[in-house]
Write a protein that binds this DNA or RNA. Structure first.
Lengths: 341, 341
DNA sequence: GTAGCACCCCGAAACGGTTCGGAAATTCTC
DNA sequence: GAGAATTTCCGAACCGTTTCGGGGTGCTAC
């Protein structure tokens, strides 16, 4: 059905070898021949057979991602977003991106193993890094290329793309400090995640530099959902020394914070200032949120560097080139005022 | 790295041919040999190379699904659910399920084409059927097996799994008719979808059988989200002859209906009866909904039949065996009372 | 004139499976 | 006990691609 190299060879009068080399742009094929071959390939509607390619060269051009088994609903929408983004980024680079979902209770490493043994994938995008990630250990042992979205250590020994979350935490805190706040609360992401730890570090650094003692009651770890933001706010504002400024780990938390403050009859920024880190997740129903100051870094910006990083890893580029750090913007949009207490 | 047939052959003293046949359970291999081969395969930790298999036999054991490009957020969560379910169903059958997302604006047929030409997939699960589905036409032309979730015609000529949505529409309407209602509104799914059309047909049939004239103002097509349910309710209840019973296409619509009724100061079931078809989508924040009567059919029940259908199609089973219809339950849980007007 | 060098090309082997046709060993049949 | 049938096995070809090693031009340099 589909045309093969043999067909092109027959149609051009060349050997299969030379056709293959022409299509792969090797340098011992004359320019004229390359053109001729490409035209023939086009005319015959040729598409390389990835299975055959994988078998012969060890590379299929297919990369994958394993969706972790737990389904925490708020993230599902982000997953779809991510799959779309990565699909596009890889297909622009002539690769095929594919996703496989681990089953509830299935061992994630075993799933990777199954995919590698199947012998169809060239490498993996990993998400949700852990400190000493067993997936990384396994893939390294098998010599399978990978790239991590985020990182599990300050300076990991594997390819990754991440933003400087220490700087994010620092900047968010600094924005409030500059307005004169000294009691600054932080509703952060899940404690186990590295990015939340980094942001916490940034928060602590900024406070310490300003000569402010760190009050652990003003920090909260939790899922990045509305209810966590609301609960943490209610707790902190009812505490002994209520904060005058609040930091939200993302927009959903911010939504919870705004709701809780409104329940308490507190105005933003009159009574409480709020800053937020915005991942710019589309589709979330956040129209209703007032404009907020803070940091901003679209999650969608990570797909391209991730694809680039994984392909680099597959092609054997040195580690230094495969560890990329993304930036973030600073947004000034109201929601900050000097403290009134 | 990974063991191959050759290794097993060497370790058992058999030929590669016989090892292959033993592992694939052919009938000209002695029982004793089969056992011996399987043990050796186990000991060597053998996994078949899917690329090689695909090349030799035309089948890799990998099947896929292409995620349509539009991202309507309410469905994203369902997609993830579905991917998880299908992954499990196929892996239980020794197949690998994989997902590829089409990019915004990309032609869905072209994406399938790319995946087929790549020569790694055996078949596809299709979702969101259209009337004369171009994907079906293309796959049929290429001879690629498929199974549809839902169907694009009353009696399609391709494998599918669906529930009897005419019966659903009929039963929901009948439940209200039995309680004495004669003005029954229906907030249905998107007009272009086949299941919504079927349910509408069921609604019309039930009304007609009861000798009630059909009032098009009492029917609404729209996305299955809360706001659609609320808006439709407000419109209908403010109409000239407000309905005394309402049918919700799913739980999110029901949520909108309950909210709107509560805004209008109407009680359920005192003032208005409500029935709903429940897909039992997990993760939706529906705890707050009062228990409702209606029909119920878990979406999660479709993954197994779909996997079975696609594998059947790949193995060349006759069409009749590949067209499956699922059932639904009837739920009596209050929310219905005789009309008070 | 020939050694050296680009440049362009090709045959054959390999990747890891499946499958076809035949062959050896065993059992059955009369 | 010969021939047929059955069971169990194997060699070889093949799927579509890449890659290794070699080979034949034609040109330059001495």
């Amino acid at each position: 059905m589909s045309a093969t190299l043999k067909d092109i060879a027959a149609s051009t009068g060349l050997s299969v070898t030379q056709v293959s080399r022409a299509l792969n742009d090797h340098d011992d094929v004359s320019a004229e021949t390359k053109i001729r071959v490409r035209e023939a390939a086009n005319a015959l509607n040729y598409r390389p057979n990835l299975s055959a390619r994988k078998l012969a060269s060890g590379r299929s051009g297919i990369v994958g991602l394993v969706l972790p088994p737990q389904d925490r609903t708020p993230r599902d929408s982000m997953f779809v977003q991510m799959v779309r983004g990565l699909s596009g980024a890889f297909s622009r680079r002539g690769r095929l991106f594919v996703l496989h979902a681990a089953e509830e209770g299935e061992d994630v490493v075993a799933v990777h193993r199954r995919l590698i043994d199947g012998g169809s994938l060239d490498g993996f995008v990993l998400i949700e890094p852990e400190e000493n990630d067993p997936r990384v250990a396994y893939l390294r042992r098998r010599g399978v290329p990978m790239v991590m979205h985020g990182r599990g250590a300050a300076k990991p020994d594997y390819p990754f793309y991440d933003i400087d979350n220490i700087a994010v935490g620092r900047e968010l805190t600094a924005m409030l400090l500059r307005a004169g706040h000294r009691r600054i609360g932080f509703v952060n992401g899940i404690a186990a995640t590295c990015y939340a730890a980094h942001r916490r570090t940034g928060w602590e650094m900024a406070l310490r530099e300003a000569g402010i003692e760190i009050d652990p009651d003003l920090h909260e770890h939790g899922q990045m959902i509305e209810s966590v933001g609301a609960l943490a706010t209610l707790r902190m504002m009812n505490g002994e020394a209520a904060p005058t400024g609040l930091i939200a780990g993302n927009m959903l938390i911010a939504k919870g914070i705004y709701n809780a403050l409104s329940m308490l009859g507190l105005k933003v920024p009159g009574d409480v200032s709020v800053v937020v880190h915005d991942d710019m997740l589309p589709g979330e129903d956040l129209m209703s949120l007032p404009a907020s100051s803070g940091t901003r870094s679209a999650l969608a910006l990570s797909w391209e560097p991730l694809a680039q990083g994984l392909i680099g890893a597959i092609e054997g580029k040195p580690l230094a080139e495969l560890q990329q750090l993304g930036g973030f913007e600073i947004v000034e949009a109201g929601s900050i005022a000097p403290p009134n207490r």
